[in-house]
Design a protein around this nucleic acid. Sequence first.
DNA 1: GGTTCTAGCGGACTACAGTCCGTCTTATGA
DNA 2: TCATAAGACGGACTGTAGTCCGCTAGAACC
Lengths: 190, 190
Amino acid sequence: MVGEPRPERADARRNRLRVLEAADRLFTEHGVKNVSLDAIAAEAGVGKGTVFRRFGDRAGLAVALLDEREQELQAKILTGPPPLGPGAPAVDRVVAFLDAYLDLLDRHVELFMDSENASDGARYRIGSYHLWHRHLSHLLESTPLDADYTAHALLAPLAADLHKSLRDAGFPLDRLKTGLRTMAATLLSS
Amino acid sequence: MVGEPRPERADARRNRLRVLEAADRLFTEHGVKNVSLDAIAAEAGVGKGTVFRRFGDRAGLAVALLDEREQELQAKILTGPPPLGPGAPAVDRVVAFLDAYLDLLDRHVELFMDSENASDGARYRIGSYHLWHRHLSHLLESTPLDADYTAHALLAPLAADLHKSLRDAGFPLDRLKTGLRTMAATLLSS
DNA sequence: GGTTCTAGCGGACTACAGTCCGTCTTATGA
DNA sequence: TCATAAGACGGACTGTAGTCCGCTAGAACC
């Protein structure tokens, strides 16, 4: 049995918000990869131990910052209007999801890179990945493919470091969207 | 114009071999992620500056260690017997490549993780990735898909950290092979 | 208000990646 | 064989991620 989790203590809450705000500010101003956690702790006016206890590591902080945006997309998928939400054919829902994710990813590549750059595959452990995976896996069930595996394989091209490399190599976002969309559509109609 | 590169100096060669040998030994004995570059330098009997000048960073060292194995596969693809080498239908060649790569990856996951875990997307800059990409891209030209992009997307599920996560989550290697094979076949026959 | 219990605090500490630069080795060619 | 320059060497140095633990302050109950 899991015990009642106590409510967040006042100082803890205050510090959590301070850290997130400081991180957001410094990341925006100097670029994600040019900001150390020491700097964030200092800017937030807390000790670095506080940052690490709360967020675990650099990836955890990035995840927390992305959380709000990802939850928005999650909500649209779970209860929003089609084609992102329930009600549209599987192909359309998959395509809508990939498009929306690519937009999110493109807007926050550096943060995503940090969130995925944990020593031991943090990306595949965090809650939102599981949701994306379940979602795709479910939509793939009508195909003869291995839905579980194929969902992972369809999410793989959304890795932040690949996305950044391709964008840096000159691929426009629309080409990535179209490419992935076509690929997904091909798989879904098999 | 590129100038004549001078031949490797005797001491440089000696140290390069010593470092590779030491790294191989320590990695095998303690596991890749439990070995620091300081330890490798010490084991090799060289200064750590030497290790970094030669290999650039941790990823570079991993790449150098993987090099031999990857070149073997590269040779088989370029000039070996079909279906890996030239002569077989595109689908068969793609499937053969993915299978062979997954075997290689599975045998050396930790090393691959290191080689791909560079701060700025090392995976997509190194020579062998380009070869894999050109190969797949070429084989995809007969489809209505965006061959260039789709080649990247097909390589994405071969990312070491995803592979490790799936294996750790209990996926047998054969299931990953089958899943990817089926997916590739579906795309190729579109 | 006072007491106590506990989660949270913070900064000193460790370990590691990667840099820098004064010193030493090798190759060359006279 | 010796002089010289190109280049490699190595280890001290810097900056950062992440840990540890003695201390502090919030919550809850009296």
